[in-house]
Design a protein around this nucleic acid. Sequence first.
DNA 1: CGGGCGGCCTGGAGGC
DNA 2: TGCCTCCAGGCCGCCC
Length: 273
Amino acid sequence: MPELPEVEIIRRKLAPQIIDTSIVSIRFRRQDLRIPIPKDLKKRVVGYKIIDVRRRSKYLLVDFANDQTLIIHLGMSGRLFFTSSNRTYDKHDHVLFDLSNGKHLRFQDPRRFGILTVCETPDLDNHKLFSHLGLEPLSDEFTGKRLYLICKRSTSPIKNFIMNAKYVVGVGNIYANEALFLSQIRPSRRGFRVTKTEAYQLCANIKRVLAESIEMGGTSFRDYVDPYEQPGLHQLHLRVYDRENQPCRACQMPIKRIVQSNRSSYYCMNCQK
DNA sequence: CGGGCGGCCTGGAGGC
DNA sequence: TGCCTCCAGGCCGCCC
């Protein structure tokens, strides 16, 4: 499941291969993703030079020289990878891009929670999918001080809070659990009960788990692979996520699983208060 | 108005 | 081996 680190890895590996090329043709096999793929997408991007590949939250952004930006979201099960032109189709290969440098990219997404759309580059921040988005966790604007100031006002559980894209983007279930473990805070603790010191630690630990995962090539649970279809290694280093009843890596107590807002939360009863 | 939660979607796992 | 149920989860939209 691609969260911020996985999307960032895809961006880094894709960028040097596709910047300065253009899309020669696009073939759609299915257009009914979470949002229907716009009918005029081809017309807006085919034939124009790719000038940048960016990331905002879990969205991958491909900028074209004609001021159009292709917006790609991988949802839960999406994959974007290079392939040979004669490879047989998987039933979930929905979109195929042929590039001017002879490479071919496929967008595959069994669950179809993904998004493929386009907008005028200058309008991106006002786009419906982007206008409400909060801070980038790896940016310098995301600080312990700011995290403390906003979570102080929140009555909701801290885990829900750090997963809320309105405040900080890109932190999904895996990394929220991991960062709270490192910060020794239980996921059920209310935002306003997090102290200033803890908020500073939580901020640092969110940055730390995201950066660690990027270094290890991301977390590959079920679906994630990079553009060369290689899985990451971070799943081997998870401290609490998906480790119910397994010993805590710090104190050996069995890891506990609870459900919050229909999502599994994992924590150590002994280490996290 | 903050925020909880249902629903979208499919494959895989587990129970019987 | 097959059928059923449940679960995974990002994100919008609904609703309290």
